[in-house]
Write a protein that binds this DNA or RNA. Structure first.
Lengths: 201, 201
DNA sequence: TATGTAGCATACGGTGCGTATGTCAAGTTC
DNA sequence: GAACTTGACATACGCACCGTATGCTACATA
């Protein structure tokens, strides 16, 4: 029966993060009220400041969670696509890129991770989570450069550019009048641009 | 002597925008106080709300100004580089990209246009200014696709991806420990990726 | 010169963040 | 197992700041 405190605490943290995801996604970070948010979670601001320090701390926790989910999903999609071609690493990279573009259509990810996140927490490379998405892309790029599949480009630079292009494309798709029609164009253009990094066979 | 009113008004608008550029760049949009900002300009919040409607309106005006300056500068740099190769459009595009990356190292542009701008005003394609930078890139891409210099890719998609990659690379460079060392890597990677859009000769 | 208007200043209300203080249940020690 | 301690969370307070409503004055018009 020991650890009942910690258990409750984790439960409350999860409740607050869940409520924050909803509030931040719907109203944006700036217009989300901490009073409302915590009340929705059945708690008060006291719990919030005790667990996360301040409003930014809560955002950081939310971003961390979303980022992890995104990286996992991208990896999954990439592996799935590579699987069709028996471990084709290049296809995996394109798959991950396409996955990022599609995921960013989700208002939660768009609003919180792509818009408010950088504005409030600074560049993703400075985030506490160290950005799992970026790490995933970096790993792929690194392997491909080693294997000669990709030109000998700077790992970090390539990862950043690929991620930046994908996420920015997603913002464009989301802001367009007809996302469903525009999405494939974005994915195609991404594949072409990424191709610039591929070693010339 | 007629029009003394309008003259003063334009002068005050300019003063407010100038003060806002400074305040937003130094403290960020959220933490910039309108009272301080207007006092620095020798005015009060009354002038602000009369001229710009609200805080967002002021940011929109500032972003518009910065965006125009950026587009003009990028065009200039691009033309300069193209000139060396007698109107090489491809070199002009790479020059513009490099120019964006370098310009984004300026805290004013980084903080206001790249971070707070999208978070507060939404995606650049929704901005009142309609984003001059994007328009400039789009124009270049359009011409090159027509002339067969670039693959027949979707104009808008290519422009967005190029801009997104460049600006995101800039954020990475700026956040790094040693920007001077990292910048050329970013520029090189950008050139490679952009090359993926080039028609295969 | 008299009058209207518009640009800007002043005054007010409301909201929301962060902190300081209080409280009570869960864990600890003898 | 009873007194004590700890810490997770609630409550209460102060302060800053945005947006609006109202007031004032210089400029424009007739």
């Amino acid at each position: 029966m020991a650890g009942k405190r910690l258990e409750k605490m984790e439960e409350n943290r999860a409740k607050l993060i869940a409520a924050a995801r909803k509030a931040f996604a719907e109203k944006g970070f700036a217009h989300a009220s901490m009073d409302e948010l915590t009340a929705d979670a059945g708690l008060t601001r006291g719990a919030l400041y005790h667990n996360f320090g301040d409003k930014r701390g809560l955002l950081a926790a939310v971003v961390d969670q979303l980022d992890s989910e995104m990286a996992a999903r991208a990896k999954e999609i990439g592996a799935e696509r590579a699987g069709r071609d028996e471990g084709d690493m290049w296809q995996a990279l394109l798959g991950e890129g396409a996955a990022y573009i599609e995921m960013a259509l989700d208002p939660e990810i768009q609003r919180i991770v792509l818009l408010d996140g950088p504005a409030v927490l600074g560049d993703p490379s400075l985030w506490p989570s160290q950005n799992s998405c970026l790490a995933e892309t970096r790993k792929g790029v690194s392997l491909m450069v080693e294997n000669g599949i990709m030109k000998p480009v700077d790992i970090e630079a390539a990862a950043r550019l690929l991620n930046g292009a994908a996420l920015n494309a997603a913002l464009w798709v989301a802001a367009s009048d007809n996302p469903a029609e525009v999405l494939p164009k974005a994915v195609e253009a991404f594949a072409l641009m990424a191709g610039g990094l591929r070693a010339t066979a």
